[in-house]
Amino acid sequence: MKIALLSYSTKPRGGVVHTLHLAEALAALGEDVTVWTLGRGGDTGFFRPVSPAVRLRIVPFADGPAGETVGQRVVRSIATLRDAFDPAPYDIVHAQDCISANAVGRCVRTVHHIDHFTTPELAACHERAIVEPYAHVCVSAAVADELRTGWALRAEVIPNGVAYERFATTDPAARVSVRSRLGRYLLTVGGIEPRKGSLDLLEAYALLRADHRDVRLVVAGGETLFDYRDYRARWESRAAELGVAPLVLGPVPDDELPVLVAAADAFAFPSLKEGFGLAAMEALAAGVPLVVRDLPVLREVFGPAAHFAATPGQLATALGHALTAEDPARRAAGRELAAAHTWAEAARRHLALYRSLR
């Protein structure tokens, strides 16, 4: 079967990570897989090496004019990918986001999470990318329920996999090196943006510092299509008011991420909106105590393997517990949960869906 998987970026965002792992797992099953994406900022490849069994088609996407809005950039992204992509050679065209779904026309669509945009171009893009695809996949039942309630659409629920061994078997010497450089630290991955609950985590960290002065907050990641400069400025201003100085690493090289995760004392995942929580599942694979926002979708995905909290105060309390209390049963449950989510199984379930649609 010839399969096209489409994403909007080469950068390390959750949907892009998902796309590459799924493509490689489908190719390992013997399928003919091509990944299409936009090469932003002069990119000619993805943020990590991709199996040679997967074909890559990276469409150049030049920087826009000065003053280009997010809405204008989205419209230009759709047009650029649409002009380059020909669906004719493929048996299945599977879009992983609203930009690629708008660009390719008739397709299968993975809805990772439901957004609520106010920018007109984004709102229209989001709506079309939900209602126009002829089949839908969600990575959790909670998001599938949102599709059913909001649009009367039925989605196939296929959870993410996780690169378990990559996070579970990091080099002890490398972990010691990271610890010697960073000390004790609380890690979050995903950058500083509204959906990630960054301001709430900052407030929680300031409260946590009352009893854990030696623990640093480390923020990794942050590649995004959107402009969060105003939110970042608010975050930095609030950090100064609170008298805290988190370490903001920005995007971390892919080969350095597993040891950064594994060396952390706890992992914070206070997102306000998620479809699955792949970065948090990677933390469980590494055996790191996990604190997540108390959302139905994260209750569904993580169950007894995580601590849950809704407010900054509750986040601080849960993080304090994660930092101090030995909890081997929860740690074991986390590793077991992460190990059960394989990309091979995700690929087999996608392939069964594709065959049912032909």
Rank of each mutant, 00 (worst) to 15 (best):
V50K: 04
A66R: 15
L22E: 13
A168I: 02
G30M: 06
E223Y: 12
A141S: 14
R238T: 13
A239H: 04
R213A: 14
D294C: 05
T119Y: 02
A264N: 09
H18T: 06
A155Q: 04
P87V: 15
A123S: 14
D211K: 09
R358F: 05
P159Y: 03
W151D: 09
K273R: 15
L26C: 13
A329Y: 05
P60E: 05
P87E: 12
L323P: 11
P246D: 10
Y134Q: 07
A325F: 10
H321V: 15
G313T: 10
A325W: 09
D171H: 06
H94T: 05
G250I: 10
A152K: 10
R238A: 13
G303H: 11
Q314D: 14
V108K: 11
A279Q: 00
G15P: 03
G64E: 13
T188Y: 05
A344D: 13
A220K: 09
I158G: 09
V131G: 04
L38Y: 07
R148A: 13
D171A: 09
A286Y: 07
R234P: 02
E223C: 11
G14V: 03
A339W: 00
D265C: 10
G287N: 03
P258A: 08
A88I: 04
R73F: 00
P253Y: 15
E326M: 13
V35Q: 00
T149L: 10
P304Y: 00
D91P: 00
R213C: 02
P251H: 04
A206I: 01
C107L: 04
L247T: 15
H18Q: 03
M281A: 09
D214Y: 08
G15N: 06
L323G: 11
W343P: 04
P289Y: 11
T19Q: 07
G191I: 13
Y90G: 05
D214E: 14
A88C: 06
L22R: 15
M1D: 01
I130D: 13
W235R: 01
V54P: 00
S271D: 00
T119N: 12
